[in-house]
């Protein structure tokens, strides 16, 4: 370009300009982060509680925990979870008694990840309900997992008890073809929405296999924790 030849810009000027822009931008970003953090945190907590209330309506208090290979630890502030941790939520009622456990299960559906929150009853070792956190399944087909009564019935008492050695589920959770459910650990798929139904089953199986063997031996710690 002609005018760059006429007026040479020194390296110092360029570095200075970029430095100036960076400083201004840095201040703005840090400022807005600090400013919005409390509101964003409150929103996230609210959203989590709303999800939990959907599957455990009597819940009063929700505490986030990490289940690691060495045991379970309560989440503190904005700590990063340990690398092998499985996140779960201990749910207490108004009498501060442990009502159940909520955890997230996620698996690839037809369009995107299907993320569901499931409620686990440690006394009976069954799943007692699910709620969808997010999904982008086809309206009218895949999103019937939200509304189909027969499908949701599967999760009234889905069997996830551990095998004798406490290392894995006695029966892996599995989604089966519509109308062929033969065990309490099986999920009867919605006919016409098999891909989404399978995603739910697969997600729950993966999550339960990872979480429950770590969680169950430590249950007393959770009962006392509140």
């Amino acid at each position: 370009m002609s005018d760059t030849k006429e007026k040479q810009t020194s390296s110092f000027e360029m570095v200075r300009a970029l430095g100036l822009v960076s400083v201004i931008c840095g201040i703005i970003i840090v400022g807005i982060y600090q400013f919005t953090l409390p509101a964003a945190d409150a929103n996230r907590k609210l959203a989590l509680e709303r999800q939990v209330f959907k599957i455990l309506p009597d819940a009063k208090n929700v505490v986030t925990y990490y289940a690691t290979g060495k045991g379970i630890i309560a989440a503190q502030g904005h700590d990063k979870p340990p690398s092998d941790a499985v996140v779960f939520y201990a749910v207490y009622d108004s009498a501060k008694k442990l009502m159940g456990i909520a955890a997230e299960a996620s698996s690839a559906g037809y369009a995107d990840q299907v993320r569901v929150l499931y409620a686990y009853d440690p006394e009976k070792q069954v799943i007692t309900g699910i709620g969808v956190i997010s999904m982008r399944e086809t309206p009218g087909i895949g999103d019937r997992i939200l509304t189909d009564k027969a499908f949701l019935e599967n999760f009234a008492a889905l069997d996830v008890h551990l095998s004798a050695d406490l290392q894995s589920l006695a029966n892996a959770v599995k989604t089966v073809k519509h109308g062929t459910r033969s065990g309490l650990w099986q999920i009867d798929a919605i006919s016409g929405a098999t891909v989404t139904s399978k995603a739910v089953g697969r997600g729950i199986n993966e999550s339960a296999q990872a979480l429950l063997p770590r969680l169950l031996p430590q249950l007393d710690k959770l009962r006392k924790a509140s």
Partner: peptide, 25 residues
Amino acid sequence: AIPKQVRIASYILIIATFVTVVDYA
């Protein structure tokens, strides 16, 4: 204050800043 040679980098930085602001907001 912004020389021609570094203008794209500066603009992108500025735009990215405000996108971050909106994201947090």
